[in-house]
Structure formats: structure tokens, C-alpha cells
């Protein structure tokens, strides 16, 4: 467990030191939700109705956007070889590493989603629901991106591969997280159920994805 803590904090530190921390995904997310209304048009009802779905969709894309770095850099600089030789084992290691990256780079997303919801004219409570759903979705999103990133580590044009692998697997999280925000906006009591399902997908991903990431790393190193 101490090993997991060391890996987690190193990832957090490295994300700030070399990668600009949360700036990349946050800027991408902000740009997406600021530009969308310009394309959709100024109708307030339409914007408020589209807001939750748009927010969840933009968050998914901003997670994907940084997925290539997640394992690609460790593969290129030899760190992955060293990690594979640690007694901690690759599944726990990849869980700590991926969540460390997720926490360090994606923490602003729920806050931006909250502000974004208000900006789109979604009332405060449904906006909060949307932000909570976003927070619940982040572990699943980042681990799935990590799995795709590990499979694509060291592959040329890995970004394309990541998009093809991760996008279909992210469908359930997208549906539940956006559903929580949408149902909240419509005053539907299914909002909480959707939030619960989002959290359930995240927990399931936490339990399963590390083994997938570990196997992907092994096959990339071999």
C-alpha cells in the first residue's frame, strides 16, 4: 500500500511539473462548452435542454485528449520497464498511477461543469447533480482512457487507436452521467438512479480495468 501511495503522489507531482497539471483538459473542456452555444444558437430553452448532455460529452473528449501521454511517456523513457519489475505488481501500480493522473489533471472538470450548467441556464440543483455525476464519472473515464493508452503505448499514431478503443467503452458512463444531469433538469426522480449507475460503472471499472491495463503493458513490453 505504501508503494501505491508513492506511485500516486509521483503521478500527481509529475502532472504538475511537466504537464501543466489540469490546464490542458480544463482548457479543452472550457473551449468546447463555450463554443457549442455559438453553433447551436441563442435559444435559451434549447441551450438549457442540451446543456447536461453537452457537458458530459465535452468532459469525455477532454479526458481522451490527454490519454496518449498517460502511458506513452513512461513507455518511451523506460519507466514502464522499471514499473513492471516492482514488487507492487502492475495491476495495483496502474490503478494508483491512473487515478493519480486523473486526480491531478481532471479535478476542475466537475467545477467547470457546475459553472457551465448555470451558464447554459440549467437551474442550480440540476447543475449540482450534473457536477456530481461528472465527479462520479471521472474514475471510469480516466481508467478506460488509461487502458486504451496502455494498449497504444509506443504505437505510432496512438491517438487514433485510443479513440477507437476507448470511445465505445465510454458509452455507458456518458449515458448515465448525461442522464443524471438531464433527468435533474426535467425534474425527474431518475436523476439519482443515474448518478448511482454512474458511480457503479466507476467502481466496476476500478475493480476490472487495472488488470486490463496490466495485461496491455505486459504485451507492449514483451
Amino acid at each position: 500500500m505504501t508503494g501505491m501511495g508513492a506511485i500516486f503522489w509521483r503521478e500527481v507531482r509529475l502532472a504538475w511539473a511537466g504537464g501543466g497539471g489540469p490546464a490542458g483538459p480544463a482548457a479543452f473542456f472550457l473551449a468546447a462548452i463555450t463554443l457549442a452555444p455559438l453553433a447551436i444558437g441563442p435559444d435559451p430553452d434549447l441551450l438549457a435542454a442540451a446543456g447536461p448532455g453537452l457537458m458530459a460529452f465535452a468532459a469525455l473528449l477532454s479526458v481522451l485528449q490527454s490519454a496518449e501521454r498517460l502511458y506513452g511517456e513512461d513507455f518511451a523513457d523506460g519507466t514502464l520497464d522499471l514499473y513492471a519489475l516492482l514488487p507492487l505488481g502492475l495491476p495495483l501500480l496502474s490503478l494508483a498511477k491512473t487515478l493519480g493522473q486523473g486526480v491531478a489533471t481532471l479535478w476542475p472538470l466537475p467545477f467547470i461543469a457546475l459553472l457551465g450548467g448555470l451558464m447554459y441556464g440549467v437551474p442550480p440543483l440540476p447543475s449540482l447533480m450534473l457536477a456530481a455525476a461528472m465527479a462520479a464519472a471521472i474514475p471510469a473515464l480516466v481508467l478506460l482512457a488509461g487502458f486504451a493508452g496502455a494498449l497504444a503505448a509506443g504505437v505510432r499514431r496512438g491517438g487514433l487507436l485510443i479513440a477507437l478503443i476507448a470511445t465505445p467503452m465510454m458509452v455507458p458512463v456518458l449515458i448515465f452521467a448525461a442522464g443524471a444531469g438531464r433527468a435533474g433538469f426535467e425534474g425527474d426522480e431518475r436523476a439519482l438512479a443515474n448518478l448511482g449507475l454512474t458511480a457503479a460503472v466507476s467502481l466496476g471499472t476500478i475493480a476490472l480495468a487495472p488488470f486490463g491495463i496490466a495485461a496491455a503493458i505486459r504485451s507492449r513490453l514483451g
Binding site: 507531482r13 509529475l14 511539473a17 511537466g18 511517456e73 518511451a76 523513457d77 523506460g78 519507466t79 520497464d81 522499471l82
Partner: peptide, 9 residues
């Protein structure tokens, strides 16, 4: 081959 160092660390 590589030393496993991070450029920014």
C-alpha cells in the same frame, strides 16, 4: 537503454 528519468523531475 533509457535511464527511466523524467525530464521535468
Amino acid at each position: 537503454h533509457s535511464d527511466g528519468l523524467k525530464p521535468g523531475e
